[in-house]
């Protein structure tokens, strides 16, 4: 299989995802199918082609350096799962 269960677990780990042991096999199979499909791109000669990362054609839009306060601290913290009104609270990293 092109992408093994271990590799799936490792990549998932990078993305802070835990795929359950039961699902890992099936996941690896599905990912393999999809990646195999993507091999089709190797048929295309891109040696002379610049990558196109975005369709945008306009020049850099800049912002003037002015400080503006458009929202309150309460608004920004309103949806926090845990806060004391001052800080966002999270469990410590061990």
């Amino acid at each position: 299989m092109r992408i093994s269960k271990e590799e799936v677990a490792k990549i998932a780990h990078l993305a802070r995802l835990e795929i359950g042991e039961a699902d890992l096999g099936r996941f690896a199979g599905q990912l393999t199918d999809i990646l195999d499909y993507m091999d089709i791109l190797n048929e295309v000669d891109t040696s002379q082609t610049e990558p196109l990362y975005s369709p945008v054609e306009h020049e850099t839009p800049y912002r003037e350096d002015e400080a503006r306060s458009e929202c309150s601290k309460e608004e920004v913290m309103r949806n926090a799962p845990r806060s004391d009104g001052e800080y966002f609270l999270v469990p410590k990293v061990v």
Binding site: A67, S69, M77, E86
Partner: peptide
Amino acid sequence: RSKLFCACSTVFGEEPNRNTC
């Protein structure tokens, strides 16, 4: 005066999470 990608103030020493958006 403002941050790199938004207009929040960069002034140091404000109460926590005041300069956010």
